[in-house]
Amino acid sequence: MAFIEIHNLEKSFKTDNKSFRVLNNINLSIDKGDIFGIAGFSGAGKSTLIRCLNRLEEPDSGTVIINGREITSLSSSQLKKERRSIGMIFQAFNLFDSKTVAENIAYPLHIEKFKSSTINARVSELLQLVNLEHRSNAYPGALSGGEKQRVGIARAIANEPKVLLSDEATSSLDPQTTFSILELLQKINKKLDLTIILITHELSVIQYICNRMAILEAGKIAEYGDTKNVFSAPSSETLQMFMKVHHQFQQQSLFVEGAGI
């Protein structure tokens, strides 16, 4: 059995008595230590899929198993406990503006009711891991996007989760900051043996950091496998289109350079 298994996952949304199927028979298995990328067009259902993994969204049917625990059959109090071992980071960071960096990172540790000395020690360890020791007493409002996401990551991994879910965590960051966040993710993936599932719009993100990937197309897995294999023979319309646009941009930039202004 793989570390994360998703079987026959289905999800529909109802709007004006019309049911709209967003996830259609999703099956995936993800191994421990994978950095698993999911890409697809806007509205393909990527966020819905990742939110079904910690049940921020309730799937209609199907099962999600993480580390041998069947997430989809947990009671709400069991789910609350289980969520502490599933970290999540967001495009909008979702930090608490009323708390300092250190307090944000300590938040999940307070949920576990650790002693305050334990919490303080763990917080400084995490601050060091994400290179933010000097910002521990700052409020999120005073941080740059990259710093905010590093706080988000520290907060998400504070309780030493087995899995980290990332919903477009770098989509609002500039390329350089994106790169540094990806490096950080790679570092914690190795150091903590953390399995990461990340959603992105950018193929380069997947190529850079993901060993395995899936393409989601209108709620279905269009293709899925090792990143290298998928990119060497893209079979889905989505990926072909993504790559075409990618190339167009590159050619465009060559053209501008070639103009020699």
Binding site: K80, K81, E82, G87, M88, N94, P108, R155, A156
Partner: peptide, 15 residues
């Protein structure tokens, strides 16, 4: 209040 903050709290297992 942004929904995201509350979701983040939920995702961390807050009651």
């Amino acid at each position: 209040l942004s929904k995201g903050k509350i979701e983040a709290a939920k995702a961390m297992g807050s009651g």
